[in-house]
């Protein structure tokens, strides 16, 4: 465990908590893509199956439980909360997630470290996480709605990606024989898509800023 990874995990967890708190505080999820949140929940469940039979550390176990519970909390709020569920842009959030899930399953079956159930599911979760933000990106490009996606949520997402890349560089230079091509390649793709998301976030923020400026 190095400081980059620890900080990366903390900012990743904080980004989910910040989004959850924002939804709870404003009782609204306007602009948030439920499909992306559901894809994240699938990523965490398919990645953390080893929660039940391999113990790596207390930190590892606690963080996995946190990620799974917090992502399901967001989904619960967006689907079932009396007030929040009415603010969900159902008509706009129409990305066909099958176009993401099916190719990730095939790719995980073809390219993996080991052809076992847990390993293929873990690899699937790595591939899926790299494209999971696409429904959110499409929704943002359609609505430019950044009411709930606060800037600290976006900043924390960016910090999570940047710190994880630093973590991989650090491990590459300090651990002999460390190489994770699957994680590195999908993590790079994920970071590229996040940069596109950040770009559209700034565009949306400026657009709203112009609209709200006193004429």
């Amino acid at each position: 465990m190095n400081i980059f990874r620890f900080a990366g995990d903390m900012t990743h967890l904080c980004s989910i908590v910040v989004l959850l708190l924002k939804i709870e505080a404003t009782k609204s999820c306007a602009g948030v893509s439920l499909r992306t949140q559901e894809l994240y929940a699938v990523v965490f469940v398919s990645r953390y199956l080893d929660l039940f039979f391999t113990f790596i550390s207390v930190y590892n176990t606690v963080m996995k439980v946190f990620f799974i519970t917090s992502s399901f909390c967001i989904i619960w709020y967006m689907r079932h909360h009396r007030i929040v569920s009415q603010t969900y842009d159902r008509e706009q959030d129409t990305f066909r997630v099958a176009f993401l899930v099916v190719p990730c399953i095939f790719l995980a079956l073809l390219v993996n470290h080991e052809f076992s159930m847990v390993e293929v599911l873990w690899t699937f979760s790595i591939y899926l996480e790299s494209v999971a933000i696409l429904p959110q990106l499409i929704l943002l490009q359609r609505t430019f709605n950044v009411d709930t996606l606060t800037s600290n949520y976006v900043f924390l997402l960016g910090a999570y990606r940047a710190l994880y890349i630093l973590n991989w560089l650090y491990r590459y230079f300090t651990e002999p024989g460390y190489s994770q091509w699957i994680v590195w390649s999908s993590g790079t793709l994920q970071t590229a898509i996040y940069c596109d998301f950040f770009y559209y976030y700034v565009v949306s923020w400026r657009k709203n800023e112009r609209l709200s400026l006193p004429s």
Binding site: T54, I56, E119
Partner: peptide
């Protein structure tokens, strides 16, 4: 050496 199938990262 590093074993890619050890899942120590989240």
């Amino acid at each position: 050496a590093f074993d890619p199938t050890t899942k120590d990262e989240l």
